[in-house]
């Protein structure tokens, strides 16, 4: 039961930390525009060369045409295959791609494991169900699981050795940078060892997911931690889930804000609109910058200061 308790705790921390990160972002005040082209929700013709709606004469009189299709067409290969890195830093991509894709496949495998558990619950447990869906899931779990583990091991070892051996990475790396990769490697290597030596069909993983969903019900007599490697894999995966959103590795999902709230945020401020209302609120904030020319005293608002002249030198 100890394993399950740890996993529950870690999932709880994951949800809390992720929710906190997102909450913090969505409650920040609206900021000035700082977009960077190409902005991928532009029409395909414009996005191809990085153009914007500002290229149109009297643009404010027109409706800004946006293309969700174009945005998705860009984002999918970016997320799945890390296309940007492939284009700009090929040698790093060769290890970063297997690393990230390995992690994605692990997430996909976790999803499949949950579905698998639900299928069993929906049948006449404890009798093992058969049928096409079950067989399909069994097959898929083996494929995504194994591929993910192999890629993840290659990727994390590669990242580790590149960071350690190349001065331009090493000179900027701290203990935590190595620790993070080692941590992920520990999961990949232990899970792979468990699969290779004791559980090639990932029966234990399926049973563990089932146990997680049912508060510890055994499936086919499984109890977590039967092999050392399997136990380490469960503990490290659980801890990782809790740890990732606490670190810069949260970029896996925070990239949404980096792109949609900054890089591609080209929303116009229209009179009487939502953005204008938010700006007006900001203009009432009272800065305390201390340089003479700012002339802030904690009572004057941004609006007062912006409409005044600087204190002369």
């Amino acid at each position: 039961m100890g394993f399950y308790l740890l996993s529950y705790l870690c999932i709880f921390v994951f949800i809390l930390a992720t929710a906190y990160r997102i909450y913090r972002q969505i409650t920040l005040p609206i900021h000035v525009r700082w977009e960077l082209y190409p902005v991928q929700h532009e029409t395909a013709a414009r996005a191809a060369y990085g153009g914007s709606y500002l290229e149109e004469v009297n643009w404010w009189e027109k409706t800004h045409k946006r293309s969700l299709f174009n945005e998705l067409r860009y984002m999918l290969p970016e997320i799945l295959f890390i296309r940007g890195l492939w284009k700009e830093n090929r040698s790093l991509w060769r290890i970063s791609f297997p690393f990230h894709f390995g992690l994605y496949l692990m997430i996909a495998t976790s999803g499949l494991l949950v579905v698998h558990a639900l299928v069993i619950l929906g049948s006449d447990y404890p009798a093992a169900p058969g049928g096409t869906i079950k067989s399909l899931l069994d097959g898929l779990i083996v494929v995504t699981g194994w591929t993910g583990l192999v890629l993840g091991n290659i990727g994390s070892l590669g990242l580790l050795s590149k960071r350690w051996t190349e001065p331009e990475l090493r000179n900027y790396s701290s203990f935590s940078d190595y620790f993070n990769i080692l941590f992920i490697f520990l999961f990949f290597v232990s899970a792979l060892a468990a699969a290779v030596f004791t559980d090639p069909l990932l029966v234990g993983a399926k049973a563990y997911a089932f146990g997680l969903l049912t508060g510890g019900l055994p499936l086919n007599g499984y109890a977590p931690g039967q092999s050392i490697a399997g136990g380490v894999a469960i503990v490290s995966a659980s801890l990782l889930a809790a740890y990732i959103p606490l670190t810069h590795m949260s970029h896996m999902f925070m990239k949404y804000f980096l792109y949609h709230k900054v890089k591609w945020d080209d929303a116009q401020n229209r009179r009487g609109g939502r953005i204008e209302a938010a700006i007006m609120e900001n203009l009432e904030l009272k800065p305390t910058w201390r340089a003479n020319h700012v002339d802030a005293d904690g009572r004057k608002s941004w609006r007062d200061i912006a409409s005044s002249a600087p204190k002369e030198k």
């Binding site: 972002q25 920040l28 005040p29 609206i30 900021h31 000035v32 700082w34 890195l85 830093n89 790093l92 970063s96 990475l169 900027y172 790396s173 940078d177 810069h248 949260s250 970029h251 925070m254 990239k255 804000f257 980096l258 709230k261 900054v262 900001n282 904030l285 009272k286 800065p287 305390t288 910058w289 941004w302």
Partner: peptide, 21 residues
């Protein structure tokens, strides 16, 4: 936010997510 509402969100995001690649 009182002092830097203008760039607070972009700054926080850039400060927190560099992978040193």
């Amino acid at each position: 936010k009182e002092n830097n509402w203008t760039f607070l969100q972009p700054l926080m995001l850039s400060m927190e997510h560099c992978a040193k690649c």
